[in-house]
Each structure stands twice: as C-alpha cells, then as structure tokens.
Computed example of a mutant assay.
Amino acid sequence: MNDLQPGKRVVVRYALHPGDTHATSDALGVIRAVDDQAVEIDTKQGPVRVERTRILVVHEVPPAPTRAGRTHRVVSAVDLRRISAAAWLPADSSWLQIDNLREEVSDADSDLGLLSKGWLLRSSDSATQRANSALPVTDTGLGWEQSLDAVEAWYATRDKPARVQIYSADPSTALAPECAGLAPLLSARGYSTSESTLLLTGATKEAAGGVVSPRDAAAPGLVIDVSDRPTETHFAVWASQRDPGSAQAFRALIEADQPCSVVTAYAPRADGSRSLVATCRIVERNKWGVMTNLVTHPELRRRGAGRSVIRAAAAMLAQRGVRSYLVDVESSNAASLALFESLGASVQHRSWYATQRQG
C-alpha cells in the first residue's frame, strides 16, 4: 500500500474485527508511523493504531482546510510550504527536533516522513536556494536561538552558509507564527534577505479553461507533449535560464520525485524536427499539483507557449483527480505572475531566504 507513508494525510477504512468486512470504521488524519504490523494515524480524537490485516481501503486526502472556501485558498501557509518542499527535496535532508536529537537519529538513518516535525534542513550541490535552506515547520522544542545555532552548525559541517526559508501567513509581509521568532535573531546575526517569492494557488479545472486533454491546450503552431522524464534538451534549456550548480545534483532534484511529469510545448519544423518553446515540471504531492521549472525559450516567446503548457498541465492534473495546484514565483517575475493570475491563481503568502553572511 503505497499510500501508507508517514506524513501523508489519509482516510483509512478498516474492519473492527479481523475477517469481518461488515463492521467497519474510518480513521482520518496524518500517518504518524508505519511498521510491518500496523499503521498509526493522528486523528482529531487522538492516535489510532490499525493492524495492516484489518485495512480495507486507503485514500490520500489534501491537507485540512483552515477556513471555509475553495480548496486551494483554505490551506495553511505551513501546509503549502510542506507540499512545495516535498516536490524539491534533496537526498541530504534531515529534521531538526529535540525528540530526534534525544533519540540520536542520524541523517543516514532518519526517515523524513516518520520524523516530519521541527525544521526541515536541506543541502544540495545544486544552486537552488530551496534545496539549500532550513524550513521551519513546527516547534523544534529547542527555542529560537538554539534552533538557529543548530542550523548554523549543520551547514557549517557542509562548508556552507546557513540559510533559512521564512514565510508569511498570508499575502502580507508579517511572518507566520512558525518562523516569526526568527526575525530579530536573523537581523542581529547579520543575515541578508533575498527578494520575496510569491506562492500562488489555483484550481486545475479553472486553469485548464475547458481543455480536457493536455494536447488540446496547444496554441496555433505548437504541439504539446507530456512525458515522465526530461530529455537532455530540457536540462540544457533549464541550465541556460539560471546557473543550476552541480549538473548531477540538479538532475537528482529534477528526477527524484515520482510521479513526475514534464509538459512541453514544441514548434514543429518542416524537416520533421521540433524546437522546445516552453516546458514545466509537475509533481503530485498530497493531492496537489506542484509546478516548477517553468521556462520559455528566450528567442521563442510571445507565442502563447507558456499559457499552453500551464493549461495542459492543469488539464492533466484534473484528469487525475487533482483539484488544486501551487507554484512559487519570484516577485520580480512580472510575466509569470501575470500568466498565472490570468488563469485564476492568486497569491497566498510570501517567502524569503535569509542567508548567513560569510567572513
């Protein structure tokens, strides 16, 4: 049962008595732990342990809403950050939390799902900040100052400056409670802050604009292709847009998550070949679609390729039963922001990368 993974929010239908499929009950919550015999689920009524032999059906469900409204607008900032992080997770990742430290859990032995509390520490030889930063998720149990000390020590062992991804609870600039206590510490220790990145969410059906099949989203003169693995051309285009750092590490980030889809708009040539015009990577997490790596070839812009790719990706997600998607866009990227907003997406919160000054 692939849905029985720590950290996932699920509903589990199970038999109240072994072998009896008539008397059943449901457990809705986040999976805390899984072993060969049973699964433990955190529900509103408390933890529920269900023997594997009594499980009848498992369904993954989106994060719990924080208020009434459309699905993509009622999920908390911290849950959106969790979903986004899960689609761009380097192999060198660990959770900073006092219980983990007490149990002397090493990076090599830790299960990121099982220990998904505290701050997520991420390191990669790629150049991306998201894969090289600490993400505050829940209280570490160490206090703000000692937590930041531990982050700095963790990155120091990797010969890197410490970096923390901080974020707001809504579109304003006020930090979310999960990282609000860091502001005075980061300032006092001389951290520099990046430009803001906006997280937008939208409904897949609205973004698809009535398109049912991804290939029907192509603008005139273009064709849409959907694959489960990028080509060398994709990597070349991504690298041309921004320094990826280690090519091997960048590939590992791109290809690590499954299911992963790459939606691409091509321009056919008379000789039968084709040119890549725009592309986007899509990862499904927690019944959300996470869109990353959206690029349009600089010399082939203004042909509707970016819009075609996003509409095709949204149609593909809708076909799979995924109702909501999210995307992180730098605040200076006016073209991408305008594109997503024109397709019905809206800004939910902001994030910044605070980096330790060296020397």
Results as ranks from 00 to 15, higher is better:
residue 50 V to L: 09
residue 18 P to H: 04
residue 165 Q to C: 10
residue 234 H to Y: 15
residue 56 L to E: 13
residue 189 R to W: 07
residue 213 S to I: 03
residue 331 S to G: 06
residue 289 G to D: 00
residue 117 K to D: 08
residue 93 S to M: 07
residue 39 V to K: 09
residue 236 A to T: 11
residue 96 L to E: 12
residue 257 D to K: 12
residue 162 A to C: 05
residue 55 I to S: 07
residue 295 V to L: 06
residue 241 Q to E: 06
residue 234 H to M: 09
residue 60 E to F: 02
residue 294 L to C: 13
residue 327 V to C: 01
residue 190 G to F: 02
residue 35 D to M: 11
residue 295 V to R: 03
residue 281 R to D: 06
residue 271 D to W: 13
residue 9 R to F: 08
residue 218 A to I: 06
residue 256 A to F: 10
residue 179 C to K: 08
residue 306 G to T: 00
residue 273 S to Y: 04
residue 295 V to G: 12
residue 273 S to V: 02
residue 215 R to E: 15
residue 132 N to I: 09
residue 184 P to K: 03
residue 233 T to K: 09
residue 277 V to E: 07
residue 89 L to S: 01
residue 77 A to R: 14
residue 164 V to Y: 00
residue 233 T to A: 15
residue 100 N to I: 15
residue 10 V to E: 06
residue 32 R to V: 02
residue 28 L to Q: 07
residue 98 I to A: 14
residue 219 A to C: 10
residue 228 D to M: 10
residue 7 G to A: 09
residue 66 T to R: 12
residue 182 L to H: 01
residue 261 S to P: 00
residue 168 S to Y: 14
residue 26 D to T: 14
residue 152 E to C: 02
residue 51 E to L: 12
residue 261 S to D: 06
residue 70 R to D: 13
residue 266 Y to P: 06
residue 358 Q to I: 10
residue 47 P to Y: 04
residue 135 L to C: 06
residue 318 A to L: 05
residue 34 V to E: 07
residue 170 D to R: 08
residue 202 G to A: 03
residue 139 D to M: 10
residue 197 T to Q: 15
residue 313 A to Q: 01
residue 285 R to E: 13
residue 168 S to P: 05
residue 63 P to A: 11
residue 23 A to P: 02
residue 231 T to S: 15
residue 173 T to Q: 10
residue 92 D to C: 15
residue 209 G to D: 02
residue 315 A to Q: 04
residue 191 Y to P: 07
residue 134 A to S: 14
residue 187 S to Y: 05
residue 113 G to Q: 05
residue 116 S to R: 12
residue 243 D to G: 10
residue 246 S to G: 05
residue 10 V to R: 03
residue 159 D to N: 14
residue 217 A to P: 06
residue 342 S to E: 12
residue 247 A to D: 09
residue 123 S to F: 15
residue 169 A to I: 03
residue 82 R to W: 10
residue 119 W to D: 06
residue 24 T to I: 13
residue 331 S to D: 15
residue 109 D to A: 09
residue 162 A to I: 04
residue 136 P to C: 03
residue 196 S to D: 05
residue 26 D to W: 13
residue 280 C to M: 14
residue 104 E to F: 00
residue 143 G to D: 10
residue 307 R to S: 13
residue 32 R to D: 10
residue 246 S to N: 01
residue 316 M to L: 07
residue 16 L to F: 00
residue 97 Q to A: 05
residue 337 L to V: 13
residue 11 V to F: 01
residue 343 L to N: 11
residue 333 N to G: 08
residue 332 S to M: 06
residue 163 R to F: 02
residue 335 A to K: 07
residue 324 S to F: 01
residue 162 A to E: 03
residue 295 V to T: 15
residue 345 A to K: 13
residue 224 I to H: 00
residue 3 D to I: 03
residue 11 V to T: 15
residue 205 K to A: 14
residue 82 R to E: 04
residue 151 V to S: 04
residue 44 K to Y: 04
residue 255 E to I: 14
residue 134 A to W: 11
residue 57 V to M: 08
residue 124 S to E: 08
residue 241 Q to W: 02
residue 236 A to I: 06
residue 179 C to P: 05
residue 261 S to Q: 10
residue 32 R to F: 02
residue 187 S to W: 04
residue 46 G to T: 07
residue 190 G to C: 05
residue 77 A to H: 11
residue 195 E to R: 09
residue 221 G to I: 14
